[in-house]
């Protein structure tokens, strides 16, 4: 390439132009703008997450308050209520020994290994307490 001068020396003698002087001002101005635009301002993602968390917390508090109000304003539950959800057709039925539709089942216990089976598909099992199941025929219930 250039006689006997080693290639490494040739490359080492390459000298690029220095950094353009105008670049310094340009870089510092751009950095100043960038730094000013971010100074004292939380990152967008951070701000967004804080807002999201605040909204979620408000909604959660509103739901909790609503549930508390509904629970507190509900009248006290009657004896046996809530153990079995009867269909609307049987809502008027009052199971028990006085009810002609209620048939006591002797010797049964709630949760035992021997299930209490109603005699047909129109009849459901209603537990007065853990030892007292009765059959209620939904078609006959009034």
């Amino acid at each position: 390439m250039t006689g006997n001068v080693p290639l490494e020396s040739e490359v080492r003698r390459l000298r690029r132009e220095g950094v353009p002087p105008a670049l310094r001002d340009r870089v510092l101005a751009a950095a100043e703008v960038a730094a000013r635009s971010t100074a004292g301002v939380a990152p967008i993602s951070s701000r967004t997450s804080w807002r999201f968390a605040a909204v979620v917390a408000s909604l959660a508090m509103a739901v909790i308050a609503g549930l508390w109000y509904v629970t507190a304003s509900r009248p006290p539950a009657a004896e046996g209520e809530g153990r079995v959800a009867l269909p609307a057709a049987a809502a008027g039925a009052r199971p028990g020994p006085a009810s002609p539709q209620a048939v006591p089942v002797a010797g049964a216990r709630r949760g035992s290994s021997r299930p209490v089976r109603p005699p047909d598909d129109d009849t459901v099992v209603f537990w007065v307490d853990d030892d007292t199941p009765v059959f209620v025929n939904l078609l006959e219930a009034k």
Partner: peptide, 16 residues
Amino acid sequence: AEDLVQATFVKLAGLG
């Protein structure tokens, strides 16, 4: 190359 130098120092300045 100038743009790269500028982007590099802008990132440095943005570190805070």
